[in-house]
Amino acid sequence: MDPARAEGMLTALELVRADAARGASLDFELLREWQQHVLGAQQPPPFRTMPAFAKEGRERYGISPDTPARLDACLAESAIGTDDPLPLTARAARAHLDVCFFHPFDDGNARAAFLTLVFVLAREGITLDDVLLLRRVSFQADDPQDGPILARYIGLHLEETRRNSALLSSSG
Protein backbone atom coordinates (compact mmCIF):
# COMPACT_ATOMS: atom_id res chain seq x y z
CA MET A 1 0.00 0.00 0.00
CA ASP A 2 1.13 3.53 -0.76
CA PRO A 3 2.52 5.14 2.45
CA ALA A 4 0.44 8.31 2.04
CA ARG A 5 -2.70 6.23 1.48
CA ALA A 6 -1.91 4.12 4.56
CA GLU A 7 -1.32 7.25 6.64
CA GLY A 8 -4.65 8.70 5.50
CA MET A 9 -6.46 5.50 6.45
CA LEU A 10 -4.79 5.43 9.88
CA THR A 11 -5.78 9.06 10.50
CA ALA A 12 -9.35 8.24 9.45
CA LEU A 13 -9.39 5.24 11.82
CA GLU A 14 -8.32 7.48 14.69
CA LEU A 15 -11.17 9.87 13.85
CA VAL A 16 -13.64 6.98 13.62
CA ARG A 17 -12.73 5.79 17.10
CA ALA A 18 -12.82 9.33 18.54
CA ASP A 19 -16.20 10.00 16.91
CA ALA A 20 -17.57 6.72 18.28
CA ALA A 21 -16.25 7.53 21.76
CA ARG A 22 -17.94 10.95 21.77
CA GLY A 23 -21.26 9.40 20.64
CA ALA A 24 -21.40 10.99 17.19
CA SER A 25 -24.36 10.17 14.96
CA LEU A 26 -23.50 8.13 11.90
CA ASP A 27 -24.45 10.07 8.79
CA PHE A 28 -23.00 11.22 5.49
CA GLU A 29 -21.41 14.32 7.03
CA LEU A 30 -19.40 12.10 9.37
CA LEU A 31 -18.38 9.85 6.47
CA ARG A 32 -17.20 12.93 4.55
CA GLU A 33 -14.88 13.94 7.38
CA TRP A 34 -13.27 10.49 7.43
CA GLN A 35 -13.15 10.32 3.64
CA GLN A 36 -11.20 13.56 3.42
CA HIS A 37 -8.32 11.78 5.17
CA VAL A 38 -8.80 8.52 3.26
CA LEU A 39 -8.42 10.40 -0.03
CA GLY A 40 -5.85 12.94 1.18
CA ALA A 41 -8.18 15.69 -0.02
CA GLN A 42 -8.06 19.39 0.89
CA GLN A 43 -11.71 19.32 1.98
CA PRO A 44 -14.40 16.73 2.67
CA PRO A 45 -15.65 15.28 -0.63
CA PRO A 46 -19.24 15.90 -1.72
CA PHE A 47 -21.88 13.27 -2.39
CA ARG A 48 -21.44 12.15 -5.97
CA THR A 49 -23.72 13.84 -8.49
CA MET A 50 -23.61 11.31 -11.33
CA PRO A 51 -24.34 7.59 -11.56
CA ALA A 52 -21.34 5.56 -10.46
CA PHE A 53 -19.91 2.38 -11.91
CA ALA A 54 -17.68 -0.22 -10.31
CA LYS A 55 -16.02 -3.52 -11.17
CA GLU A 56 -15.27 -2.53 -14.76
CA GLY A 57 -18.82 -1.29 -15.31
CA ARG A 58 -20.59 -4.45 -14.10
CA GLU A 59 -22.15 -2.57 -11.19
CA ARG A 60 -24.12 0.65 -11.53
CA TYR A 61 -25.18 2.94 -8.70
CA GLY A 62 -27.94 5.36 -9.57
CA ILE A 63 -28.51 8.81 -8.13
CA SER A 64 -31.62 10.84 -7.35
CA PRO A 65 -32.26 13.98 -5.31
CA ASP A 66 -33.17 11.92 -2.23
CA THR A 67 -30.20 9.50 -2.36
CA PRO A 68 -28.20 11.31 0.38
CA ALA A 69 -31.24 11.42 2.69
CA ARG A 70 -31.95 7.72 2.07
CA LEU A 71 -28.33 6.89 2.96
CA ASP A 72 -28.59 8.90 6.19
CA ALA A 73 -31.84 7.10 7.10
CA CYS A 74 -30.18 3.71 6.57
CA LEU A 75 -27.07 4.68 8.55
CA ALA A 76 -29.23 5.90 11.45
CA GLU A 77 -30.64 2.39 11.78
CA SER A 78 -27.22 1.13 12.85
CA ALA A 79 -27.66 2.70 16.28
CA ILE A 80 -29.01 0.95 19.36
CA GLY A 81 -32.46 2.12 20.32
CA THR A 82 -34.10 1.88 16.92
CA ASP A 83 -37.58 0.35 16.86
CA ASP A 84 -36.39 -3.04 15.63
CA PRO A 85 -32.84 -3.47 16.93
CA LEU A 86 -30.73 -6.03 15.12
CA PRO A 87 -27.77 -7.79 16.73
CA LEU A 88 -24.56 -5.77 16.63
CA THR A 89 -22.97 -7.94 13.93
CA ALA A 90 -26.01 -7.49 11.67
CA ARG A 91 -26.08 -3.72 12.24
CA ALA A 92 -22.37 -3.43 11.44
CA ALA A 93 -22.76 -5.57 8.30
CA ARG A 94 -25.80 -3.62 7.16
CA ALA A 95 -24.13 -0.24 7.64
CA HIS A 96 -21.09 -1.47 5.68
CA LEU A 97 -23.29 -2.73 2.85
CA ASP A 98 -25.41 0.44 2.88
CA VAL A 99 -22.30 2.49 2.11
CA CYS A 100 -21.39 0.01 -0.64
CA PHE A 101 -24.93 0.13 -2.07
CA PHE A 102 -25.32 3.93 -2.03
CA HIS A 103 -21.73 4.41 -3.23
CA PRO A 104 -21.70 8.02 -1.97
CA PHE A 105 -18.22 9.04 -3.14
CA ASP A 106 -16.50 9.19 -6.50
CA ASP A 107 -13.59 7.23 -4.97
CA GLY A 108 -12.81 5.19 -1.88
CA ASN A 109 -16.23 3.69 -1.16
CA ALA A 110 -14.85 0.32 0.00
CA ARG A 111 -12.66 2.13 2.52
CA ALA A 112 -15.61 4.27 3.61
CA ALA A 113 -17.71 1.12 4.09
CA PHE A 114 -14.98 -0.45 6.20
CA LEU A 115 -14.67 2.67 8.37
CA THR A 116 -18.44 2.62 8.83
CA LEU A 117 -18.28 -0.97 10.07
CA VAL A 118 -15.46 -0.08 12.48
CA PHE A 119 -17.49 2.89 13.77
CA VAL A 120 -20.59 0.79 14.49
CA LEU A 121 -18.48 -1.65 16.51
CA ALA A 122 -16.43 1.09 18.23
CA ARG A 123 -19.59 2.90 19.27
CA GLU A 124 -20.25 -0.15 21.45
CA GLY A 125 -16.70 -0.28 22.77
CA ILE A 126 -15.43 -3.00 20.44
CA THR A 127 -12.14 -2.94 18.59
CA LEU A 128 -11.38 -6.10 16.63
CA ASP A 129 -7.93 -7.67 16.92
CA ASP A 130 -7.89 -8.62 13.25
CA VAL A 131 -9.88 -7.52 10.21
CA LEU A 132 -8.07 -9.41 7.46
CA LEU A 133 -11.07 -11.47 6.41
CA LEU A 134 -13.29 -8.39 6.37
CA ARG A 135 -10.84 -6.47 4.18
CA ARG A 136 -10.02 -9.29 1.74
CA VAL A 137 -13.45 -10.60 0.83
CA SER A 138 -15.75 -8.64 -1.44
CA PHE A 139 -19.44 -8.40 -0.59
CA GLN A 140 -22.30 -7.33 -2.86
CA ALA A 141 -24.83 -4.97 -1.32
CA ASP A 142 -27.66 -6.33 -3.44
CA ASP A 143 -26.91 -10.05 -2.89
CA PRO A 144 -29.33 -11.38 -0.25
CA GLN A 145 -26.74 -13.89 0.99
CA ASP A 146 -23.88 -11.44 1.46
CA GLY A 147 -25.37 -9.52 4.39
CA PRO A 148 -25.72 -12.61 6.60
CA ILE A 149 -22.29 -13.88 5.47
CA LEU A 150 -20.65 -10.56 6.36
CA ALA A 151 -22.44 -10.56 9.73
CA ARG A 152 -21.08 -14.08 10.40
CA TYR A 153 -17.55 -12.96 9.47
CA ILE A 154 -17.86 -10.00 11.85
CA GLY A 155 -19.09 -12.43 14.51
CA LEU A 156 -16.08 -14.71 13.94
CA HIS A 157 -13.70 -11.76 14.33
CA LEU A 158 -15.56 -10.65 17.43
CA GLU A 159 -15.34 -14.14 18.99
CA GLU A 160 -11.61 -14.28 18.20
CA THR A 161 -11.08 -10.86 19.80
CA ARG A 162 -12.96 -11.93 22.92
CA ARG A 163 -11.02 -15.21 23.07
CA ASN A 164 -7.71 -13.36 22.76
CA SER A 165 -8.77 -10.91 25.45
CA ALA A 166 -9.72 -13.76 27.80
CA LEU A 167 -6.36 -15.46 27.18
CA LEU A 168 -4.50 -12.24 27.96
CA SER A 169 -6.53 -11.72 31.11
CA SER A 170 -5.94 -15.24 32.37
CA SER A 171 -2.20 -15.15 31.65
CA GLY A 172 -1.66 -11.72 33.19
Rank of each mutant, 00 (worst) to 15 (best):
29 E>G: 14
29 E>R: 15
29 E>I: 09
30 L>R: 13
31 L>W: 08
31 L>I: 08
31 L>D: 07
31 L>N: 07
32 R>Y: 05
33 E>P: 03
33 E>D: 13
34 W>V: 03
34 W>G: 07
34 W>R: 07
34 W>P: 07
35 Q>W: 02
35 Q>L: 02
35 Q>T: 02
35 Q>R: 05
36 Q>S: 07
36 Q>L: 04
36 Q>T: 06
37 H>V: 00
37 H>I: 02
37 H>F: 13
37 H>T: 05
37 H>L: 06
38 V>L: 13
38 V>R: 05
39 L>Y: 12
39 L>G: 13
39 L>M: 11
39 L>K: 09
39 L>F: 10
40 G>K: 11
40 G>C: 10
41 A>M: 06
42 Q>A: 15
42 Q>D: 14
43 Q>C: 06
43 Q>G: 09
43 Q>V: 09
43 Q>S: 13
44 P>V: 00
44 P>C: 03
45 P>Q: 04
45 P>S: 06
46 P>S: 09
47 F>P: 05
47 F>G: 06
47 F>Q: 03
48 R>C: 00
48 R>F: 01
48 R>G: 02
48 R>I: 00
48 R>D: 01
49 T>D: 14
49 T>L: 12
49 T>Y: 05
50 M>P: 00
50 M>V: 14
50 M>Q: 15
50 M>Y: 13
51 P>K: 00
51 P>L: 00
52 A>F: 01
52 A>G: 14
52 A>L: 03
52 A>K: 03
53 F>M: 13
53 F>Y: 14
53 F>N: 05
53 F>P: 04
54 A>M: 12
54 A>H: 05
55 K>E: 14
55 K>T: 14
56 E>R: 12
57 G>Q: 06
57 G>W: 06
58 R>A: 10
58 R>P: 01
58 R>V: 11
59 E>T: 12
59 E>I: 05
59 E>Q: 13
60 R>F: 09
60 R>L: 12
61 Y>W: 11
61 Y>R: 11
61 Y>E: 04
61 Y>D: 01
62 G>I: 06
62 G>F: 08
62 G>P: 04
62 G>V: 03
62 G>H: 07
62 G>D: 12
63 I>A: 08
63 I>S: 02
63 I>E: 10
63 I>W: 11
63 I>F: 11
64 S>P: 01
64 S>G: 14
66 D>T: 15
66 D>C: 08
66 D>L: 15
66 D>N: 13
66 D>E: 14
67 T>D: 09
67 T>N: 02
67 T>F: 04
67 T>R: 05
68 P>T: 00
68 P>L: 02
68 P>A: 06
69 A>I: 03
69 A>F: 12
70 R>C: 02
70 R>N: 04
70 R>V: 00
70 R>A: 09
71 L>F: 10
71 L>K: 09
71 L>W: 09
71 L>Q: 07
71 L>C: 01
71 L>R: 11
71 L>A: 02
72 D>P: 02
73 A>W: 15
73 A>S: 13
73 A>P: 02
73 A>G: 10
73 A>K: 13
73 A>C: 08
73 A>Y: 13
74 C>V: 10
74 C>M: 09
75 L>F: 09
75 L>K: 04
75 L>T: 04
76 A>F: 11
77 E>T: 10
77 E>Y: 08
77 E>F: 07
78 S>H: 01
79 A>Q: 11
79 A>S: 10
79 A>E: 11
